[in-house]
Design a protein around this nucleic acid. Structure first.
Lengths: 204, 204
DNA sequence: TCAAATTCTGACCATATGGTCAAGTTGAGG
DNA sequence: CCTCAACTTGACCATATGGTCAGAATTTGA
């Protein structure tokens, strides 16, 4: 972070390996549960070498969070005020569920962070997330005023979409245990279910 | 756990204080992030004294989990096959949301555990949770067969209820940040929203 | 009241962990 | 092929942490 963007080939490669390894470890054990030794070993580097690229454990975590925040908020950004209300929201559900399926570690990284009071991303909440959500909630409210969506509290609608989609990444072990499966086939079922759930309650 | 149930007045009081403190600390920092010193200080005991009542950190955690599992599964147990289908499920939603409101630490304790792969409660999943969910899912499926509920995949319906209700406990900081509130008034809104959401999609 | 059982504690231990540093190795440009 | 900067590491440090133990303080029951 404070270090200038990776420039040499080696810097590029190792920084990437570190962030990749850190994502593995942080998402599995949380910030305090993760150790530099674990991250270094996963990345195939020695601990001092790891600390040559990032000044501290904090810095690695911060770099990860910053990098992922954009990807994470992207689907909500894509919600288009000029599209068809119901389909726009269902598309958002689909995109969020795809993130859970394709980037479960990222989802768990955020979940871990928020669960523990989000001590390291408070500013992102108030400065990025809240304005974005307020903006999109206003669009949804307008659609409801126009009678193009059934009336519901827009913020809570967004919460329910986050909750239901992220559940499949964050509580993966529970989902698998309850369904008695080890494959990932339940994502297709989940999509069908969620689309049905939200379509029925949103259609005016 | 291995120790016989607290018998003397002092044992009763101190065991209780320890579990209460441990709930605070574990739910906030996760298993690996929590320290015995923290728990001991919160409980108002010395660390060696803490270890006089529980043989290890693991044991404290295990005792907590065991004690909470019952409370946590209770609302689902209460789902009654002879009741009115839509109202039974909406009552379940209400009870789960009440748990999130009244026992957020318990919710976060479980969330932390599951997020990290549920290494310490795997057996509870397969031996208690799965059979219970399968049982209730069968009841819901029967209601749908009888045309008394709109058709949806029952397991995923249950997941969506867990996800949406627990979201308000587990992601509390995020909810507050996005709503821009510090009070707990959003629980009433959440209830209204969730009841509407599920009623619309479940009514045949 | 007094001995036995229970409860409590200061001091201590082994290990883990985030981080440092001096010195060595490797790679890139001239 | 030589030099200088970039990269890498073994050894090390201070602190934190889970846990132990001998003995002191307190409670209990006869």
């Amino acid at each position: 972070m404070s270090r200038p963007k990776a420039q040499t080939r080696i810097q590029q490669k190792n920084s990437e390996a570190i962030l990749e390894a850190a994502l593995d470890v942080f998402s599995q054990f949380g910030f305090r549960g993760a150790t530099l030794d674990q991250i270094a070993e996963t990345a195939g580097l020695s601990k001092p070498n790891l600390l040559y690229y990032f000044p501290s454990k904090e810095a690695i975590h911060a770099a990860l969070i910053a990098r992922l925040l954009k990807v994470w908020l992207d689907p909500l950004h894509a919600l288009d005020a000029t599209g068809d209300p119901v389909e726009e929201i269902l598309d958002y559900v689909r995109r969020k569920l795809e993130l859970s399926r394709d980037f479960p570690r990222e989802s768990r990284l955020f979940a871990n962070e928020i669960l523990q009071g989000a001590p390291r991303i408070q500013t992102a909440f108030t400065e990025e997330l809240k304005p974005l959500v307020d903006d999109k909630a206003a669009i949804i409210a307008r659609w409801m005023d126009e009678g193009r969506l059934a009336r519901m509290e827009p913020h809570h609608l967004i919460f329910s979409i986050w909750a239901t989609t992220q559940h499949y990444a964050d509580f993966d072990v529970q989902v698998r245990a309850v369904l008695g499966r080890t494959d990932g086939a339940h994502f297709a079922e989940a999509e069908e279910f969620l689309i049905t759930l939200f379509r029925r309650s949103l259609t005016p």
